[in-house]
Amino acid sequence: MIAQTPPSPESASVAAERPYYPNTSWRYGLDRLFVIAIWSAIAIAIAALGLLLFDILLDGLPTLSSQFLQGFPSRSAERAGVYPALLGTIWVMLVVMFVSFPLGVGAGIYLEEFAEDNLFTRLVEININNLAGVPSIIYGLLGLFLFVRLLAPITGGRTVLSGGLTLALLILPVIIVATREALRAVPDSLRQGGYALGATRWQVIWEQVFPIALPGILTGTILGLSRAIGETAPLIVVGAVAYISFVPEGLQSAFTVLPIQIFSWASRPQQPFHAIAASGIIVLMIVLLLMNGAAIYLRNRFQKERL
């Protein structure tokens, strides 16, 4: 902070002759008040998160073992494991990533750089913004109808593919909006510079605009994927099952995911299952951290590359 000298009596008398009343002590007071307010906001948020983590670690760490990681669901909490759900989550998230990233980024680029500003694109825009706020269970119903029933010949019904596609739809608006924001933040002077050298629209977007927007796009994608990995409701509707005694072997395999497994354990009356639910949460958080870590690593690498 900058050291402030208190106003001397002389300067106060000079100020009195001018039609300005700086009232600095009041303004600095407001400054301090604001700093206290934002500090308390962040302190409360971190304290809540810390408490939650502490509680989960306390409950879940004792039962977190390699046997838990490699085990299958079981009627007894001591023998139950998270392995099929962990692999199910990985499978589903791979589908989500490979579908939602190219589709979302493509749609964002189209809307921001190619589409003309007319009634139709504005309607599409409003719809996308609204879709971002639609409850996830609705996506579950859509997924049930579209992927499980209508496209059953392709998806195989209640499978990894159906679940992944449903979640991909769910986070598509998030990625589209993030992509557009990131593209909009690229200064127009760079596009002009590219065009003035005889670049085509695609060359300008691919070589000049996209690399600069990519870190922002990846940030949006991280947010979207983080949302998808924790979703339970739409997958229950689409037909993930909590008790599964095999590992998914392909896209058309039945599956479960970590949040559903955790939910099913946590809703049992017996205390030992609550403990392994906490262990499941720890595993889920580690997967989430690894995924986000990878995305942040990629983002930083691109940021470095653009100098």
Partner: peptide, 26 residues
Amino acid sequence: LRSRIGMVFQRPNPFPKSIYENIAFG
């Protein structure tokens, strides 16, 4: 046409790339 009639703008707008790449791009 724009590759035959070049342009320099009011504010310098180098690409956020290396000096070498700035020239090589066009």
